[in-house]
Design a binder for these strands. Structure first.
Lengths: 186, 186
DNA sequence: GTCTATAAATGGATAGAC
DNA sequence: GTCTATCCATTTATAGAC
């Protein structure tokens, strides 16, 4: 991928996390990069092409986040804690939302090609949480009944939903909900 | 409220649940009602005015849903079950999403006046779930540690998040997540 | 209350020159 | 790869006649 193409993609990823997919435009990209809309179209002919690239970028981004957390500690509790804390402090520090959550928000507007790309990214996320929860239970760090996959699904859904609440109510609801989650698996 | 105004509001509520707030337009309303855009503006001068009315409509809608469920059975388990089942079968049957979830999806785009109106509706929803969870625990129907308020918050966040997953993955993830939730409070 | 007409901006996208 | 120029559709919104 050319430097320019990469540059466009990264700016688009930034706008995805602040404005959402449907609400950032080629004009936004054009303005901030100092090149014309036509030039952006040279690199990503249709917005859908850029959208699919953004899904893949999001998959890579998540993978890096997970690798970083996994490398930082061996404890399942600590890994979970660091993700849950990091997710919302990212919002507060940088004013950005998880790019996958941003894609979820616009899902009814997205072409099938993008929905298929999102499906894979969703699975990457679910797999990581499933791994952490299973590992933690095996080691006796967590205590819960049922399938780690299903508990991971519940948690990931709550995380996606949380962004909107935090935007309107601040972080109190989120903190309480996650404290409660931890109580349930203790 | 005049009949016409009410009619516009109800059509807008329908479009909110199918297309989302930012994606339905005065043109959509105009086409389906057979009157011009200018006439819609006579009833709701700015889209923001319609938006605030939609928040209030959503609060009333939710209140009716809860009343209906509360009147249908005395069991906390059954009430919870009926909501969880009803929420997603509403999507499948009518192709509609919870109007509050639709508002949440566009939250970053909404004016402060609408966010304030949403805040009240969120509280109506949280209060109902809190009531059900507290009641169920008092009666020995549920078994969990922690605050009913916080568990309600966790569940409501997961419900909001679930709509996007269902759209892409079907209802399997949702069913598994809710089965898991029920396991956690049994 | 409803209409025609129109404004002013923005959206994604393309043709063709350099 | 980037530009100018342009297209066509759409959005929210307003002025003023009926």
């Amino acid at each position: 991928m050319s430097d320019r193409k990469q540059q466009i993609l990264e700016l688009a990823a930034d706008l995805l996390q602040t404005k959402g997919y449907d609400s950032f435009s080629y004009q936004d990209l054009s303005r901030e990069l100092g090149i014309t809309k036509a030039s952006i179209h040279h690199h990503f002919a249709r917005k859908e092409d850029l959208g699919i690239a953004l899904c893949e970028w999001t998959g890579d981004w998540l993978t890096k986040v997970y690798q970083h957390i996994d490398a930082s500690t061996d404890s399942a509790w600590e890994r979970l804690e660091r993700y849950l804390h990091g997710a919302m402090s990212y919002v507060e520090r940088e004013g950005k939302c998880c790019p996958l959550a941003a894609l979820h928000n616009d899902v009814v507007l997205l072409p099938e090609s993008m929905q298929n790309a999102m499906k894979k990214v969703d699975q990457v996320e679910l797999d990581w949480f499933t791994k952490i929860l299973r590992l933690g239970r095996e080691r006796g760090e967590f205590d819960f009944e049922g399938e780690p996959e299903h508990l991971a699904t519940l948690l990931v859904m709550a995380l996606k939903g949380a962004y909107a609440y935090n935007h309107v109510h601040g972080q109190n609801f989120y903190c309480n909900a996650m404290k409660q989650f931890k109580t349930l698996i203790s």
